[in-house]
């Protein structure tokens, strides 16, 4: 089974789809968690602690967070590795390019999956160093989630970079959801339309949810 999955183009796409779905589920949770900022400093800081306390008897304090981090890291690695393999394969499959090749069918989202993915990967690295580890954030203090966010987003360039990255994520997800469902064989002829609409609604909701935080901070609604 492992061979058939890892060794074939269809299997690789299934891996990308599955890891994509895991990352997506995480993004939903992350976005909902972010929204706690609108309930005040106490609420979001308490939420950060709570995340570390659940499943404490079993995994110890912060154990669940580490489990999530491991799963996410594995997913990201698998997602990127298979994407790279498929991209390489695609390049080999067409050694001579067309002299003219207009856009025909593929959406903007579909055509930007690869570079979009690279941008997202760079952003996530920055994002972790900025708000999780704090190396790139001079004002960073562990546990002070609310302060860290507010201070960060008061810098216009941070807010701008964050916004740009979230939009790229949204575009990535717009094609990614539809693509993943097809790669996993879930899409049927009748479902094709539903899936497409759902992908757009979903991607938009996620983008709006994520952007509500920096915009609120930047325009002084929070903080």
């Amino acid at each position: 089974m492992v061979g058939a999955i890892f060794g074939s183009t269809v299997g690789k796409k299934a891996i990308m789809a599955t890891t994509g779905v895991i990352l997506l589920l995480y993004l939903i949770a992350h976005m909902l968690g972010n929204l706690r900022i609108f309930f005040g400093e106490e609420s979001i800081n308490r939420y950060a602690v709570w995340l570390r306390e659940i499943a404490e008897p079993l995994l110890g304090y912060g154990g669940l967070v580490w489990v999530i981090r491991v799963v996410l890291t594995l997913s990201v690695v698998l997602h990127i590795v298979t994407a790279t393999q498929l991209a390489r394969r695609a390049r080999q499959a067409r050694p001579v390019r067309y002299a003219t090749r207009p856009k025909v069918q593929g959406s903007y989202a579909a055509r930007t999956m690869r570079w979009g993915g690279v941008i997202i990967a760079l952003f996530v690295t920055y994002h972790v160093l900025d708000l999780t580890v704090g190396w790139l954030n001079p004002d960073f203090e562990h546990g002070e989630v609310y302060d860290n966010i507010v201070v960060d987003f008061q810098h216009w360039y941070v807010a701008l970079a964050y916004t740009a990255a979230v939009v790229v994520v949204g575009v990535h997800i717009r094609h990614g959801v539809a693509s993943a469902l097809r790669s996993l064989g879930v899409t049927t002829a009748r479902g094709e339309r539903v899936v497409n609409v759902a992908a757009i609604v979903f991607a938009t909701a996620l983008v709006v949810g994520f952007l509500s935080v920096p915009f609120s901070v930047f325009f002084g609604l929070v903080g």
């Binding site: 269809v10 593929g106 959406s107 999956m113 097809r182």
Partner: peptide, 24 residues
């Protein structure tokens, strides 16, 4: 051949209208 990334270019070019759903 390369792997499918669901861009839909194939079905758009197909002279016989084979639906993309077949790939799913």
């Amino acid at each position: 051949f390369g792997g499918c990334t669901n861009t839909g270019e194939c079905a758009a070019a197909c002279p016989k209208g084979i639906p993309l759903e077949t790939i799913s």
